[in-house]
């Protein structure tokens, strides 16, 4: 449930890496990664490489991030999803809201 983040040197993109369980227990850390920035980056990358599972509250958190990033104008990429995580995102139609690969 560790969340870590890193900004690209030019401040254009925020990379958020989720490890372990992605559920309500990580909502505070997840939110902190983008709400405490000095300036809002142009795009976001959520790396699921080390995420073991996610639940519906994680989906809610991703949607809150999307809201923050500008809703329909947002540019958020979710990457390195395992087949199971990919399945959950697909069931929830997240492919229409995020760039998933």
């Amino acid at each position: 449930m560790a969340i870590s983040s890193e900004m690209t040197p030019n401040g254009a993109m925020l990379k958020i890496e989720v490890s372990g369980r992605f559920d309500f227990s990580s909502h505070h850390d997840f939110r902190k990664t983008y709400e405490e920035l000095d300036s809002k980056p142009e795009s976001f990358l959520v790396d699921m490489k080390n995420a073991t599972y996610l639940d519906s509250s994680a989906l809610g958190m991703l949607l809150l991030l999307r809201d923050y990033a500008g809703g329909d104008e947002s540019n958020i990429e979710i990457t390195n999803c395992s087949p199971d995580i990919r399945k959950i995102l697909t069931i929830s139609n997240f492919e229409q809201l995020f760039a998933i690969n």
Binding site: D55, L59, M61, R66, I88, I91
Partner: peptide
């Protein structure tokens, strides 16, 4: 609502 940040759990369960 598609973009609502809550109430997705049941939908997810039904599909899985």
């Amino acid at each position: 609502k598609e973009e609502s940040s809550y109430g997705r759990g049941l939908e997810l369960l039904k599909a899985l």
